[in-house]
């Protein structure tokens, strides 16, 4: 009895497993909105079917079995993040060789040379406002380039499948800060990624910044690059990451009316200029409070006037007392 039942349950279990996997693989249906909004969505789905999740399946023609495999994490592209990214209108094979259309992918494709930002964006008048040429030359001067091999490319920070512009958007400054700092922390707070490029021990960011007053507030409200990248007038976001010895350490660089933040974090939102008719750096005040940088011109004048009156009053009163005392012998 047991002998007969065992293979039957085995078949049922196997059948169930195949059905569950089949449902998992086929359950994703590209919605009509995505199809309409993104002209290459349907053809990209051919790639996303495997690269859009953690598992993929194929028919092994040798054994005749349907095989399920775990997708290599680096080869997974999040479908949702891709369709929010700057490259969302692209076809996968715009950047990857057409040969990827075949499966199994030819082995030589592992050696494919990946495009860099400048390869597509350089010299293109459509992208002139971004000044990619300057970004490229700044990057070449930065420690990311000079201290590392050519393996350090744009993609280390800007994942082409997910990267989206944040500084030029109308997002809240805090969201821009969180998004941009996550890019740095992706390697600087992850030992496995950090040591892909260096043998150094990963520095403890919190301990290294212990000198910074209100550390948590700074980390939430300003980007790493505010202090670690050179400000450049011709590009919106500085790409020349300086050696740590040259990082900004003087508080007054930001905490003053001539705040460095106006040329970096708030550069895009600077509309009010440095008008004396009200608040200095009013744009900073819209979303945060930077002691020394958010100053009111009238309050400054008024306080000086009042200090003047107080001192003048005291001086006159004191002089009168002295004169009267002398007159009375």
């Amino acid at each position: 009895m047991h002998k007969n039942l065992f293979p039957l349950s085995n078949v049922i279990t196997k059948g169930m497993t195949v059905m569950v996997f089949f449902l998992l693989i086929t359950s994703f249906q590209l919605d009509d909105k995505t199809k309409k909004t993104f002209k290459n969505a349907e053809s990209n789905e051919f790639c996303f079917k495997c690269h859009g999740q953690s598992k993929y399946s194929y028919n092994n023609t040798e054994s005749g079995h349907h095989v399920f495999k775990k997708m290599y994490s680096e080869a997974i592209v999040d479908r949702d993040l891709f369709y929010e990214s700057n490259h969302r209108q692209f076809k996968c094979t715009d950047c990857h060789p057409e040969d990827y259309d075949t499966f199994p992918h030819p082995g030589r494709l592992r050696m494919e040379t990946k495009y860099l930002c400048i390869d597509c964006h350089g010299g293109d008048p459509k992208y002139a406002k971004f000044n990619f040429e300057k970004i490229e030359s700044e990057f070449q001067e930065s420690v990311h380039s000079t201290k590392h091999s050519q393996d350090f490319t744009c993609w280390m920070c800007h994942n082409p499948h997910t990267y989206k512009i944040s500084t030029r958007s109308q997002e809240k400054i805090k969201d821009i800060v969180a998004y941009d700092n996550a890019i740095c922390l992706n390697c600087h707070a992850d030992i496995t990624k950090y040591q892909l490029l260096t043998d150094k021990v990963i520095p403890n960011i919190v301990r290294k910044h212990e000198w910074l007053p209100n550390q948590a507030l700074h980390f939430k409200n300003v980007r790493c690059i505010e202090c670690h990248a050179m400000v450049n007038d011709s590009i919106l976001v500085g790409h020349n990451i300086k050696p740590k010895s040259k990082a900004v350490k003087r508080c007054v660089e930001c905490h003053s009316t001539n705040s460095l933040l106006m040329a970096s974090l708030y550069k895009f939102k600077v509309q009010e200029g440095r008008s004396k008719a009200g608040f200095y750096n009013g744009v900073i005040m819209n979303e945060s409070y930077v002691i020394g940088a958010n100053r009111n011109y009238y309050l400054g004048i008024l306080s000086l006037l009042m200090f003047g009156f107080v001192f003048a009053g005291i001086a006159i009163h004191a002089t009168m007392r002295i004169i009267k005392r002398k007159n009375n012998g």
């Binding site: 007053p213 508080c251 007054v252 100053r295």
Partner: peptide, 22 residues
């Protein structure tokens, strides 16, 4: 000192002023 801080003129170094003030 904090209210009128300037890069070229540091009456009391900013971080020290902040700590003392707090």
């Amino acid at each position: 000192s904090m209210q009128f801080s300037k890069p070229e003129f540091g009456f009391i170094r900013f971080d020290i002023a902040v700590s003392i003030h707090n």
